[in-house]
């Protein structure tokens, strides 16, 4: 940790979009065409440290994919700079590509009629992977993903989950320093998702790979990422470590007590705390973290408690709240 591996400085990307005008086709062809500029990304700056797993979140059309395309050098910025390992990923593409692995969740990298193993062999040549590394990685990935059963079947016959495992393995084959996963778990069942998350965790333990992940499954992101970046309408509205972000937003917890008998006393709500008494249950919500201990001690001292439950707002709720807050 510590080295900046990706630096993004005041990055903007505009798309030039044709406005479809009214009128019949002949009129449309010969009339002056109207265009408008759409800001896909607007003055974005951040940096990513080596070895971090970074989750990029945002609604559809917020600019996530554009950001990934700029970071991988597929597009070049309208303004601002991207530096990946000290290089410009667009102008120094071939060199940069040796160090990165990319998976676009909705498009395949593998050849349809070939087995994953045959596609890997082709990638071995394209990336110039030496025999030893190649064998080692194949063995490791086949083990982690349990791919023995389908690694020799043509890609067209694989299920979505199997295919995605193969795609992700392909992105890690040449031991890249940075891997970009654009919605890798879209449309997958829970077991395939788990398997992919396990894989990513295990890679994290044994290597110093930096991972940039976009997903709509926020709990999944919460479980493997160190940091998060929230993009909304082309701007970064939040950039923080997951830990710190969670801390900031879990300031409000709820505590539920199940009480034997019907007597309770000694809780006076302070600040925004809300107290609800309902059929043998006492619920205190909007509790600040520092107050949790105090409230529980007080309740335990004065009542017979059957059960206590502390409810943290889940990660999805926090992110939703953050996006609604806006800039």
């Amino acid at each position: 940790m510590g080295n900046e591996i990706i630096t993004v400085n005041r990055l903007s990307k505009q798309y030039h979009v044709r406005i479809i005008t009214e009128g019949n086709i002949i009129k449309r062809i010969f009339s002056k065409k109207k265009y408008k500029e759409i800001d896909a990304l607007n003055d974005v700056s951040f940096s990513i440290q080596e070895g971090q797993y970074v989750g990029v979140i945002g609604n559809n059309g917020a600019g996530k994919s554009t950001l990934i395309k700029l970071l991988t050098g597929i597009l070049y910025p309208t303004a601002g700079q991207v530096s990946v390992m000290g290089r410009d990923p667009f102008n120094d593409r071939i060199k940069n590509n040796r160090n990165i692995g990319v998976v676009f969740g909705q498009k395949t990298q593998l050849k349809w009629d070939l087995s994953p193993l045959e596609s890997y062999d082709l990638l071995k040549t394209i990336y110039g992977i030496d025999d030893e590394t190649y064998k080692e990685n194949i063995k490791k990935f086949v083990g982690l993903f349990e791919m023995e059963d389908f690694i020799n079947n043509p890609v067209r016959s694989l299920s979505l989950g199997q295919r995605m495992k193969c795609e992700i393995a392909a992105a890690f084959l040449h031991n890249p320093s940075i891997v970009f996963l654009d919605e890798p778990t879209i449309g997958l069942d829970v077991f395939s998702k788990d398997s992919i998350l396990r894989f990513l965790r295990s890679i994290k333990e044994e290597s110093n790979v930096t991972l940039i992940l976009t997903t709509h499954d926020l709990e999944e992101m919460n479980s493997i990422c160190d940091r998060l970046i929230i993009i909304d309408k082309g701007r970064i509205i939040e950039e923080d470590t997951i830990e710190h972000f969670t801390e900031r937003f879990t300031c409000s917890k709820s505590i539920v007590f199940c009480i034997e008998g019907d007597i309770w006393k000694d809780i006076n709500p302070i600040d925004n705390e809300v107290l609800i008494v309902d059929n043998g249950k006492v619920i205190v919500s909007n509790v600040r973290k520092e107050r949790v201990n105090e409230i529980i001690s007080l309740m335990l001292a004065n009542n017979t408690i059957n059960d206590v439950q502390i409810i943290e707002p889940n990660f999805t709720e926090m992110v939703k709240k953050r996006i609604n807050e806006g800039d």
Binding site: K69, T72, G73, I74, R93, I94, K95, N97, R98, I100, V102, F104, K107, Q109, I126, Y127, G128
Partner: peptide, 13 residues
Amino acid sequence: RGEFDRFLVRPES
């Protein structure tokens, strides 16, 4: 079909 991008992220022309 958006498949062109995959050629752009590999270390080959």
